[in-house]
Design a protein around this nucleic acid. Structure first.
Length: 576
DNA sequence: TATTTAAGCGCC
DNA sequence: AAAGGGCGCTTAAATA
């Protein structure tokens, strides 16, 4: 393992190493303290005023251990209490339960129990709350914490999995803090944009004027006065009746058709999407006090990416409306995204020197966006290597390699890419083959893919069965191929963000979260920090330093670069 | 009528 | 012959 894995993900010194376990029981909240080896420091005691007690103990910088950050931390934040670090037992359990690094541990062999269940909230929405078959609980947070410590100690690489668990838990804190702080949102600007594009806000159930006039044109051209444009079958029927053959009413299908109705129809669909997904109803439901409070779900995706839930659609915020994200007066938004993150992750994972070199700054491929950028444009570097002839081809070929494309342009370009970067391509190919064989694959830090549904061959299978299975196996191979890259990129992003949080905290001053520079948004490979204007340059420096830290945490001394595109703006829409 | 599924499209 | 990974949300359509 490369050097650097023992470092604390938040960039802070390890002090004391005290774990403060919080549990809820019939008798109220209990606090138990343990040393880093899991030995009890003092008898557990009942906590009367949680926020007060947490604030008092936080001065000793313990790691707070609780079942689920989303049920403990929001209340603490509302009470004005932040914590530096935690162990989220549910998130850690999910990783440890499945990790190949812990395959020989007691946890891997243990039967499923209540700790494997989703959060109570998710259980309620999935209708499984009253599952009478739920197995006997295998203890509270104290027992589970001890079990996880034993499991970690027994893994083949405790530092590696430990970094992942720390990053995952830090992510849970960050998600809660971002929801608490909220993304600055100008409802007036949002309304103005909607009015320009759609016309004034109509009464409930009515279409805005711009949509009505487009619809009128579509109905006239097609000779279908009763056409319901929001019903795909209805649209297909009307098109067919007008002699326009269409496979589906998908935009990219319609775009290929040369007919006067296509223009207004596509424009209608675009506006209909804006209205239903991010129109006035969205604004009413999701913006309060000029803040949008995104509901992130750390670890919500099998690969380790975050998911989101609720009508806000935090991870699908369209570029169209980002102009409504406006910094407070005297404040700025610092928007940073990692340039070509996934291809760089693949270069690092595979140790492909040529691809690493292609992503390294030199005269021919220096990133020109952001004056202080280090690191090159990876795609330009690939072009410079002679593997492909244009930047667009480099991009298509790389994405195809990571997603498992075999046909089309990506399929045609892949052999050339494989000749120039054999190790990188072999790496994803091997991940795909493993998936096809029904094996699991793992990310850099040890998150493993779920067991696939790929089954062995069976003599009684018909030819159709065999063919179907081959298709499924190929499909699962594309999943595992992508899993290693997407999952490791998610780990990099978690380390980046966790490190940034620590850095912002360290230079933030004495104010509470929202009085200081703080994270307000995250989008897989992009972060947004809201900060006083005079701190923006310093924040940019910290963001870049955190990215460099993340690269070292995952890949040690490997000379892989993770350049960022950083924009200091008043509104999110200005950042491209 | 209530709930589930599918289509379509937004994000990375 | 074709063969692109991961998500969530809204609306319409299908099903219970």
């Amino acid at each position: 393992m490369p050097k650097g894995h023992g470092a604390d993900v938040a960039g802070s010194r390890q002090t004391g190493g005290v774990y403060a376990v919080l549990s809820r029981g019939p008798g109220g909240i209990t606090l138990s303290e343990f040393d880093k080896d899991g030995r009890p420091l003092k008898p557990g005691r009942t906590v009367e005023h949680l926020a007060t007690e947490v604030a008092r103990l936080e001065r000793d910088r313990p790691r707070w251990v609780w079942d689920d950050t989303s049920t403990w931390y929001p209340g603490l934040l509302r009470a004005g209490v932040r914590v530096e670090r935690c162990v989220d037992l549910r998130l850690c359990r999910a990783i440890l339960r499945n990790s190949a690094l812990a395959a020989a541990s007691e946890l891997a062999a243990a039967p499923p129990d209540a700790w494997d269940k989703a959060t109570p909230d998710a259980r309620a929405s999935s209708g499984a709350l009253f599952d009478l078959d739920e197995p006997e609980s295998t203890g509270g947070p104290v027992e589970e914490f001890a079990r996880q410590r034993r499991t970690i100690a027994a893994t083949s690489d405790p530092a590696r999995i430990g970094l992942l668990l720390a990053a995952e838990s830090a992510g849970a804190l960050i998600a809660a803090e971002m929801r608490f702080a909220g993304l600055p949102w100008s409802s007036a600007e949002h309304d103005r944009m909607l009015t320009v594009l759609l016309g004034p806000r109509p009464r409930a159930g009515e279409r805005p004027t711009r949509m009505l006039s487009l619809l009128e044109r579509v109905r006239t051209i097609l000779g279908a006065p009763d056409l319901n444009p929001d019903s795909p079958p209805d649209v297909l029927k009307a098109l067919a009746a007008a002699g326009i053959p269409a496979e589906s009413s998908r935009s990219w299908e319609l775009q290929k058709i040369d007919h006067p109705v296509i223009g207004p129809l596509l424009e209608y669909k675009k506006l209909a999407r804006l209205l239903s997904a991010n129109g006035w109803n969205w604004l009413d439901a999701n913006v309060t006090g000029e803040r949008f409070h995104p509901d992130f779900v750390p670890g919500g995706v099998v690969t380790g990416r975050w998911a989101s839930k609720g009508g806000g659609g935090a991870l699908q915020l369209p570029k169209q409306v980002r102009g409504a994200v406006i910094a407070d007066p005297g404040w700025k938004l610092v928007v940073a995204d990692a340039a070509q993150l996934e291809p760089r992750i693949l270069a690092a994972l595979s140790g492909d020197r040529g691809m690493i070199e292609a992503g390294t700054a030199d005269d021919c491929n220096l990133v020109t966006v952001g004056a202080a950028s280090s690191g090159g444009d990876l795609y330009a570097g690939i072009v410079a290597s002679g593997a492909v002839d244009t930047r667009e081809h480099a991009k298509v070929a790389m994405l195809g390699a990571m997603y498992g494309a075999t046909s089309g342009e990506a399929g045609r370009l892949l052999p050339r890419l494989a000749r120039t970067y054999p190790r990188a391509i072999a790496f994803v190919e091997e991940a795909a083959r493993a998936g096809e064989r029904g094996e699991t694959v793992s990310t850099r830090l040890g998150r493993s893919s779920p067991r696939g549904a790929v089954t062995g061959y069976d003599e009684t299978a018909t030819e159709a069965d065999t063919s179907k299975r081959r298709t499924q196996s190929k499909s699962w191979g594309r999943f595992t191929r992508n899993f290693v890259v997407q999952g490791t990129a998610a780990e990099w992003a978690l380390c980046w963000m966790a490190g940034l949080r620590g850095r912002l905290r360290a230079f933030g001053g004495d104010g509470f979260l929202t009085d200081e520079p703080h994270l307000v948004f995250f989008l897989h490979d992009e972060v947004v920090v809201h900060c006083p204007a005079d701190r923006a340059d310093a924040v940019e420096t910290e963001i870049r330093a955190a990215a460099a830290d993340a690269g070292r945490l995952l890949f040690g001394r490997l000379p892989i670069e993770f350049p960022l595109t950083v924009a200091i703006v008043d509104n999110y829409g200005e950042a491209k």
